[in-house]
């Protein structure tokens, strides 16, 4: 079973996981997963994120380092640097930061 942080729940600290993370609530601190991380619309993540892939529909403040791909959905709001092999940014996503795609 994967890990779900539901809306209304706040985690302050460090999350380390070997499995999928789905975040609908609030996370402050540090977030590390060996699998996919999804930040849903309405979620607030103030953390540095490491993941194999990252999908963002909510708010992310922090740097992210992703092995495969990062998808910023419409409605996403990201402040921070993104390092990933591939990045997609949907129209309507807000983004402020550096992008590093290992060109």
């Amino acid at each position: 079973m994967s890990t779900v942080i539901a809306p209304g729940i706040t985690i302050e600290g460090e999350i380390t996981s070997d499995e999928d993370l789905q975040i609908g609530g609030t996370v402050r601190g540090k977030l590390t997963s060996k699998d996919a991380v999804a930040i849903d619309a309405g979620a607030v993540v103030e953390a540095d994120v490491q993941a194999s892939s990252l999908t963002i529909g909510g708010h992310l403040v922090g740097n992210s380092q992703v092995a495969e791909r990062v998808d910023l959905l419409a409605g996403a709001r990201v402040i921070g640097n993104v390092k990933a092999a591939r990045i997609t940014i949907a129209e309507g996503a807000q983004f402020k930061g550096n992008v590093d795609m290992d060109v």
């Binding site: 779900v4 539901a6 729940i9 706040t10 985690i11 499995e19 609530g25």
Partner: peptide, 22 residues
């Protein structure tokens, strides 16, 4: 809360968890 928060078997959390819901 329609959806419960689940900390899966492969996940470690060091820090506080608080809020509304299960």
């Amino acid at each position: 809360m329609a959806e419960a928060t689940v900390i899966g078997a492969g996940t470690r959390i060091r820090g506080r968890i608080h809020g509304d819901g299960d």
